Simulated assay, not measured.
Amino acid sequence: MQYFDAAQTADRLDYPVLIPALRSGMAAEASVPPRQHYSLDPDGEATLLVMPAWNREFLGVKLVDVFPGNARHGLPALSSVYVLADGTTGQHLALVDGGELTRRRTVATAALGTSLLAPEDARVHLIVGTGHIGGAVYDAYRAVRPGIATTLVADPHNPAGAEALAERLTRRGADAVAVAVEDLPSAVGRADIVTTATLAREPVLRDEWITPGTHLDLIGSFRPEMHEVEPSLLGRATVFVDNDVARTEAGEIATALARRVLTEGDIAATLPELCARPAPRPRTDGEITVFKTVGTGLTDLIAAVTVFAGRDPA
């Protein structure tokens, strides 16, 4: 069995490789049981998350340990690993760093949504959120929309983070001009594509800011109490999700459904349904599209297989 650390995992998950792999893998037959949560202490703080998935060739499971109390000991609160096995024999093939795998498959999934839904002539991209996930967005989107000329970077909770990310992109010679912005309503109005990657519990984007023709990728929220946009926006947008779990786990979707701003039938398609189409779905004039991703065990499996398939020869 081989082990791939964070650096090796990142090296094998180059976005021009990973995004097409996700598209083909999402369209194929697979089994993805619900994510399992196990409380490990009486207070319910320490948690084990188990995320399995399998197809005809491979099976795998991501194990995530969440120990919030680790901060008191100077240790990360979250640790994860992916175990990949042969789907025919069950023999273990690889252990893959779960943190880097999750980071890259998350932004690659959002970029895949953009490749299938966003305007092909998009020129201005706004990234909202500059943390562990937000910092990886630029490279993934560059792989699917190379015509983007301007990347706006905003972080309402950490303006210094926006300055730092824009500076890093500029310093390394990014193809798109990177600019940190503080006037978020104005930046949203300029953008053809908006990507949010925050842990906000209150919306960072207002419905009234979103102009006709905009495409939004919402990456951050993965719990019902988390919201990156006002639920009312979903009532005037065409909404897509990475998988049906988003209906209950994503705050924006769950709240919009509860308030009847959105109905179950209003969700236009899941990502596997989009990937199964021979060509990207055409946009209508002035249409606002929203792609909401909460993560799925299938994308973890595809990413882990991609890492293993690109392994160094023994």
Rank of each mutant, 00 (worst) to 15 (best):
Y3S: 13
T9A: 01
T9W: 00
T9K: 06
D11V: 00
L13V: 10
M26K: 00
D41L: 06
L59V: 04
V66G: 13
G69M: 05
A71F: 00
R72W: 03
H73D: 04
P76I: 06
P76W: 01
L84F: 08
G87F: 10
L95Q: 08
G98P: 02
G99Q: 12
E100M: 15
E100Y: 09
G113L: 05
E120A: 13
I127V: 14
G131R: 05
G131W: 03
Y138L: 07
A143G: 07
I148C: 14
T150R: 12
P156Y: 09
N158T: 10
N158K: 11
T170I: 05
A174P: 10
V177S: 11
V177L: 14
V177I: 08
V179M: 09
V179H: 07
D183K: 03
S186Q: 13
S186I: 02
S186E: 13
V188L: 07
G189A: 12
R190S: 14
T196N: 11
G213M: 13
T214E: 12
M226S: 05
E228N: 04
R236Q: 04
T238C: 01
V241Q: 00
V241R: 03
A246K: 02
R247S: 07
G251I: 09
A258W: 03
V261L: 15
P272Q: 07
A276H: 08
R277S: 00
R283A: 02
D285R: 13
G286K: 06
E287T: 11
T289L: 13
T289P: 04
F291L: 06
A309P: 12
